[in-house]
């Protein structure tokens, strides 16, 4: 495969974005392209481990790092962009760990050697980039403003960062990226949304957890956390909640009918991805941004508001 051109970036979609979260995948690609960067999928990717391998030592690091190898080997890129916060966490965790710990690096390289897929050893000289932080740092708010053709005037949005985009800074280095986003009070999504012409609301649960990690075996916890987040956002006057993670979507969007069943109408609010709103403001149709995919039916409020 050809190496990347200057306006291209190696991209890791992950299992969720390639399947049920295509809305996030497609809209991420659309808006990146509009902002001047083409996201090129790495061939032959494998699952990042989704946090379920953490008690398995270096095997948990092999999962994401094999993809870093693919990016370097096949696309000639040290860095890898991704939109899923869980993948982002797994990649940055593994990179941070092997950078700091020689034993763990050798253990990972042992697995690489035995699998025999690549000729060289893994060297932790690249970075994982979350799409939000990546677009913010590489292109910036001005580039967003420049591309807005349909301002989202009158749309009140509750930005939801969740956990792993900004935490923990020992792994994400959120505070050390070219321009920093704060781990406790991140701002990048706020700035993007405001650049789109939307209004952001403060509701206090911006970096709360959705309980997504245990959502299959511990619905009870996840539902309680999500119900709190949704009702707080609703109370603050939000029309929609904007996300940057497909796991959050699983908990807040896909499960919303069950949450409403349990906690009532206060826990009902349309959920969208940040990149869907960006695509809409950039002039793409609601179909192109796949708003119809969301279970919580954001199309209703978008139509009502005349977007």
């Amino acid at each position: 495969m050809d190496k990347l051109k200057e306006n291209q970036a190696a991209y890791y979609p992950g299992c969720a974005l390639l399947t049920i979260d295509r809305a996030y995948n497609n809209s991420s690609k659309l808006v990146s392209k509009k902002m001047g960067i083409e996201l090129v999928e790495i061939p032959d990717y494998n699952c990042c481990g989704i946090g379920e391998m953490k008690s398995k030592g270096a095997a948990s690091m092999y999962m994401p790092l094999r993809n870093m190898m693919l990016a370097k080997n096949r696309l000639g890129s040290k860095n890898l962009v991704m939109a899923c916060s869980v993948c982002y966490h797994e990649f940055s965790r593994s990179i941070a760990r092997v950078k700091e710990n020689q034993n763990e690096l050798s253990a990972v390289n042992e697995i690489f050697k035995e699998a025999g897929e690549f000729n060289e050893e893994f060297i932790p000289d690249g970075e994982a980039r979350h799409i939000l932080e990546f677009l913010y740092n590489e292109k910036g708010v001005e580039e967003v403003k420049k591309n807005v053709v349909k301002p989202l005037k009158g749309l009140k949005v509750a930005p939801y960062y969740g956990c792993l985009y900004s935490r923990p800074s020992m792994y994400t280095f959120t505070d050390k990226k070219p321009k920093m986003d704060n781990s406790e009070r991140p701002r990048f999504m706020h700035e993007f949304l405001e650049a789109l012409g939307a209004e952001t609301v403060f509701y206090g649960n911006e970096v709360q957890c959705c309980g997504g990690r245990n959502v299959v075996q511990d619905e009870e916890t996840s539902f309680a956390l999500c119900s709190q987040t949704i009702s707080k956002a609703k109370k603050a006057g939000a029309d929609v909640i904007a996300l940057i993670c497909p796991k959050c979507a699983g908990a807040l969007d896909v499960n919303q009918p069950k949450i409403v069943e349990k906690f009532g109408k206060d826990s009902e609010l349309p959920i969208v991805y940040l990149t869907q709103l960006m695509a809409l403001a950039f002039g793409f149709s609601k179909k192109e941004a796949e708003f119809g995919d969301m279970i919580s039916e954001p199309l209703k409020v978008l139509n009502e508001k005349g977007f």
Binding site: C163, E184, G211, R213, N214
Partner: peptide
């Protein structure tokens, strides 16, 4: 029951 939110680690 830990949800792996990393607030503690932060």
């Amino acid at each position: 029951r830990c949800v792996g939110c990393y607030k503690c680690s932060q």
